[in-house]
């Protein structure tokens, strides 16, 4: 179990993380989402003991990051957002170097390294120079390095960034497999569809503050029930006014002026009344359904609500 206890981190006057508190159960896959600068990487680096908290503590399987950083490090496999390259090393030598740094005995290295290369699908690239690996292969090698000492917890910072669709799918299936093996996984990403597929829990951060932390099911259900996606044939200036009279707020899609996301009552009667009113007003509705990408909606709704709350004191 991982417990963040009112953890804050500031750099000078900048508050990178503000009183983060949450409990992550064993075996959970937690997605950290938030805009750039929201504190995701800071939270992950605090957990890995790479940076000390300004206040608060993180307890990892009973060990404090402040008091027992070495014990915490033994439990964690970390994959940073960038893949640091050592020139002229082969994939096997790369893993061998980190295994030696982890004081793994020679006999164990001889068994573990080929096994890891096989697990991440790089057995054919074992003697390939690291710097000549594709981005996807390099990411898998980086994940392999994080798995070398068979850690109970995996911390992955933007693992899918810059990957092509095939590499993303391969990485996702690898993470699914690791989750099934009981690993606790913390993963930060901007690709919400990947997180929706992988995660059991979501932590939403913005400006260092915790916007939400719950199971994926709870977060998305709450949003899905209150969100309707409406598509009309032509742009209608009066659309917002009509939906507002029925107690719904509307948000026009930035990509498509004829698509709206509505938030409001989830009662079937209210929705039916709204649809009827739109048709009565002569609006040609060709799609009217609960929002499909619930995680994206949850994220947008929660972060914009937080933004509005933040703007109120300034108004």
């Amino acid at each position: 179990m991982i417990e963040f206890r009112s953890v804050s981190k500031s750099y000078g006057t900048t508050q990178a993380l503000d009183s983060l508190s949450c409990v992550i159960p064993v075996g959970a896959t937690v997605g950290l989402i938030g805009p750039n600068g929201s504190g995701k990487t800071t939270a992950l680096r605090l957990l890995t003991t790479l940076i000390p908290p300004t206040s608060g503590d993180v307890i990892v399987a009973g060990h404090s990051v402040n008091e027992q950083p070495a014990a915490v490090r033994n439990l964690i496999g970390y994959m940073p957002d960038t893949f640091g390259v050592y020139e002229s090393m082969t994939a096997t030598e790369y893993l061998d170097f980190y295994a030696r740094c982890g004081r793994m005995p020679r006999a164990a290295r001889a068994i573990t390294i080929p096994a890891i290369l096989g697990r991440v699908g790089l057995i054919d690239a074992a003697q390939t120079a690291v710097m000549s690996l594709s981005r996807g292969m390099a990411q898998r090698l980086s994940l392999g390095r994080a798995l070398l000492h068979d850690p109970a917890i995996l911390v992955l910072d933007e693992p899918a960034s810059g990957l092509d669709p095939r590499a993303r799918i391969e990485l996702r299936s690898l993470l699914h497999e690791l989750h099934q093996h009981g690993k606790t996984i913390l993963i930060s990403s901007h690709i919400l569809s990947d997180l929706a597929d992988l995660c059991t829990h979501m932590l939403i951060l913005e400006h260092g503050k915790t916007i939400a932390y719950d199971t994926l099911a709870n977060l998305t259900n709450a949003t899905r029930q209150q969100t309707i996606q409406v598509s009309v044939l032509d742009e209608v200036p009066a659309f917002a006014a009509i939906v507002a009279t029925h107690g719904y707020t509307s948000q026009q899609s930035p990509d498509d002026a004829c698509t709206y996301t509505l938030h409001g009552s989830n009662a079937p009667a209210d929705r039916a009344a709204l649809l009827y009113a739109l048709i009565q007003a002569g609006i040609t509705v060709h799609a009217f359904a609960a929002a499909e990408s619930a995680l994206e909606q949850a994220f947008l709704q929660m972060t914009s609500a937080a933004q509005q709350a933040q703007e109120v004191p300034h108004a």
């Binding site: 070495a70 970390y78 940073p80 390259v85 980190y98 740094c101 982890g102």
Partner: peptide, 16 residues
């Protein structure tokens, strides 16, 4: 140079 290549954090996380 390790910091620039961003490999230094990974060494710090080992038992070195």
């Amino acid at each position: 140079g390790e910091r620039e290549r961003q490999t230094f954090d990974l060494i710090l996380l080992t038992q070195m």
